[in-house]
Structures are given as C-alpha cells and as structure tokens.
Write a protein that binds this DNA or RNA. Structure first.
Ligand SMILES: [Mn+2]
Ligand SMILES: [Mn+2]
Ligand SMILES: [Zn+2]
Ligand SMILES: [Zn+2]
Lengths: 153, 153
DNA sequence: TTATTACATTGTAATCTTTATAATTAGTTT
DNA sequence: AAACTAATTATAAAGATTACAATGTAATAA
C-alpha cells in the first residue's frame, strides 16, 4: 500500500508539472492556493466536491475562501484541465481530466469508480439522424452497489 | 396543429385514468392539486421543472404552495410514475414515465427531446465484471444543438 | 350522519450549494 | 522598484429544495 502510494506520487509529479505548464501557457497565474487545489485534484482518487477540496486544504491555508476553490475549479474547467460531474441533489464533483472514461456510482455509499469503455459513437450518430441535432458529446453513468456495500448487505 | 392536440388529449385521457388507478392502488389519495400536477405532467411535452408546474397551475390554484408541487413529485417518483432528470446547475426536470427512453438536450436553448434507443445492456454487463458492482441501471444523455438553434447560428 | 384519524396542503423559515461584489493582496511585467 | 492586472478574501445574495407547524380535507368507523 505504501509502495503503491509512492509510485503514484511519482506519477502525479509529472502530471502536476504538465498541468502547471498548461496553466502558464493559458495565461493563468500560479498562486499557492491554485497550485494546492490543482495538486489535490490530481492526487485525489475520490472525485472530490468543492467542499472536500476546501476542507482538505484548510490545514495548509487557514484563510482560504471557499470562493477561491470555486474560482479555481472554474478556471481549470474553462481550459479543460478538469471535468465537472453533476448529480442529482448533492454538490458537483470534479475529475482531473486524464483520458476519457465513464463512471460507475454506488447508490449506497456514493463511491465513484472510473470505468473505461469505448465511446458510444453509434448512439451519437443515430441521435443525429433521428433528431436533427448536431451532437457535441454525451454523458453516461452506471449505478449500482459496490463490492464493499454488497458485503455489508 | 389543433387536430394534433385533440388527438393527443384523447390519448392522455387514458393515461391519466391509468395513473390515477396506480395512485389509488398505492394507497395515495387523489386531491385536486395532486390530480392537476399529474395531469400537467402527462400532457406536458417539455419535461417541466417544479416551477414550470407551479406557474402553469397558479391560475387554477391561486393558493397552491410550491411545497405541494415538490411533495407530489416525490410521491409520484416513489411509486414510479415519474422520473426526475437532474442536470448541472439548473433545477430538476420531471418526466412522466411512459416507456424507457433517452434524452437529447440542446446546449443552446435547453430543449429536451426524447430519443429511443435499445438499452445499453452490454455496457452494464461489462461494468459488472470489470468493477464488481451489482448494477441496477444507467443513465445516458446526448448533448448538442437542436435544428432551431442551428438555423439561428 | 357525525366523529375520528391519517394524510395533504399551506405558508414560511431554514438549509445548502453556488455566485456576485467590493476591498485587499500578490503575481507579473516594465 | 513601480505599475498593472489578476487572484484572494470575506461576506452577501441568489436559487432550489426541504423542514416544520398549523390548518384543512379525504377516508373510515361509530
Ligand atoms: Mn473519473
Ligand atoms: Mn422524456
Ligand atoms: Zn458502496
Ligand atoms: Zn435549441
């Protein structure tokens, strides 16, 4: 487990550098708060909410405003660094944008797991011909019960 | 256009009766407000928000509370009469539950159009084997620009 | 029919997430 | 270092939904 984490940390190090370059080349300033939000997003495996991020960083930045988190998430979204995942009642979740993938969501504990599957191009194509829309993208999620929650009945 | 509407009204008449039976057999009382919300949902073609319904009925029920609309929508949802469609920032939309179908959404004007396509069972099956989840259902929507909005550039 | 009971509606307050605003702070460029 | 501009902060405001308590009404029993 430790090894796993260390290995991941090495990996994210590159991703952070890459993301910072992306920000710089988009004319976005690198501030300590912004860097921390970005870093947390890249290292997090939980598809965090804005409040998750806010709480995770309040130790390091006791004066940081929740508006800063939202502002930065919007900036990251605008330049394509992160994707916003919106669900029913609860708050949005944010996903650092690596490769395209879908999500499987546990209805019992709320866990969100990545799920790789070829893009549903046929569905998009048919929708175009049937509805006359010019299709730009689609969204799909799968809901169910995760292994942990199945065990606990 | 008139003929079209009259024809549809005949059709919805049966659906309303059917839905009322469903409510009765579920032990849910039929009140005038509840009936009006149900009727509006069945006749509406726009996947209305709670506020759409509230506004549409305020002529007939000047004293109706917005809480009543929400309460009834919850009741309808609980017994499976309607489905709640949740999108990002905006408010939920409600769909009278006829047959299973997907939706195509215009990113320009917000229009939501029904789209019939065979259920993505293969995707669900693969998700089960890959993630170990017990899958219950999925959701999919397609986004793009509707014909009307394409015309207006 | 009347009384009882449980459910539904109403009006309003509260909650929760997200955005707007204005003042202050801090990167960046010259 | 000075000037310029963007980012942060604190707080207020907005918008959607839910909670709550009082009142009203449909269903059922007496
Ligand atoms: Mn993901
Ligand atoms: Mn529909
Ligand atoms: Zn779970
Ligand atoms: Zn449109």
């Amino acid at each position: 487990m430790h090894e796993h984490h260390d290995h991941e940390h090495d990996h994210t190090h590159d991703e952070i550098k890459e993301a910072v370059e992306h920000l710089k080349s988009s004319g976005v300033r690198i501030t300590p708060q912004r860097h921390a939000v970005l870093e947390y997003l890249i290292e997090a495996e939980i598809h965090p909410t804005a409040d998750d991020i806010y709480k995770a960083l309040e130790g390091k930045f006791p004066n940081m405003s929740v508006a800063t988190v939202y502002n930065n998430l919007r900036v990251f979204k605008d330049i394509g660094l992160v994707k916003e995942l919106t669900y029913g009642d609860a708050s949005s979740r944010f996903d650092y944008n690596t490769t395209k993938h879908y999500h499987v969501i546990c209805e019992s504990c709320g866990k969100i797991v990545d799920f790789h599957y070829p893009s549903l191009d046929e569905v998009e194509a048919l929708a175009e011909t049937v509805t006359g829309f010019e299709v730009s993208h689609h969204r799909m999620e799968i809901y169910g019960t995760c292994p942990d929650c199945k065990e606990k009945h």
